[in-house]
Simulated assay, not measured.
Amino acid sequence: MPAFPSKKFRPSSYQNTIGAFYRRNLARYPFLFFGLPFVFTIVAGSFVLTPATALRYERHDRKVKQLTKEEELGLGKERRRVDINEEYYRLAAKDLDNWDNKRVKRLPGEHDGVI
């Protein structure tokens, strides 16, 4: 005789419960008793969570204001206006052919990269 019998012990009062009814019919009609409630739960959850998610994003949108391009770049009233043509001519006027390569002074104890 095996240590654990394959037949589970269930009292006689168990036969008339909802759990017994569900177990019996789950084996016969798996889609009706498992698949259909599962699909219903997913669809119902979608309908319930859609307004909640919309509310979440609406509250977030109220907190965030839309910035103009100047505010985004940090340009305020005290900053000069940038004109692309003016910047081009200002850079073109610089002498880019004659320049000296200057090393940055290193901190004490920092390796300077010279071999």
Rank of each mutant, 00 (worst) to 15 (best):
R62C: 00
A54Y: 10
T50A: 11
K63H: 09
R62Q: 02
L73C: 03
H60V: 09
E71V: 02
V48G: 05
S46L: 14
R62N: 04
G45N: 04
N85A: 13
K65L: 11
V82F: 14
E58S: 08
F47M: 11
Y57W: 14
E72I: 07
L67N: 08
G74E: 03
T50M: 07
E71K: 09
V43N: 02
L67H: 14
E71N: 07
Q66S: 15
L55H: 12
V64D: 01
R62D: 00
K65C: 06
V82L: 11
K65E: 13
L75M: 06
D83Q: 02
F47E: 09
E71W: 05
R62V: 00
R81T: 07
E72P: 01
V43H: 06
T68D: 13
A44K: 03
D61H: 06
E58W: 00
R59E: 07
G45K: 03
V82R: 10
K63E: 05
G76Q: 02
E71G: 02
V48R: 06
N85P: 01
K69D: 09
D83I: 01
E70R: 10
T41K: 05
K69F: 14
L75W: 04
E70V: 01
S46Q: 11
D83E: 06
Y57K: 03
L73P: 00
L49C: 05
K69E: 10
R62T: 00
S46P: 00
L75D: 00
S46N: 12
Q66M: 15
I42A: 12
F47Q: 09
E72W: 04
E70A: 08
R62E: 03
I84L: 15
L73S: 01
R80C: 05
F47L: 15
K63D: 04
R56V: 13
L75V: 04
T53E: 13
P51F: 11
E72M: 12
E58D: 09
L49H: 03
L55D: 10
S46W: 10
T53N: 10
I42K: 05
V48M: 11
S46C: 12
I84W: 06
T50G: 02
D83P: 00
L55Q: 12
K77P: 15
L67Y: 14
R62A: 05
I84T: 10
K69A: 06
E72C: 10
D83T: 02
V64N: 07
Q66P: 01
E58I: 02
R80D: 04
V64M: 07
V43Q: 08
S46V: 11
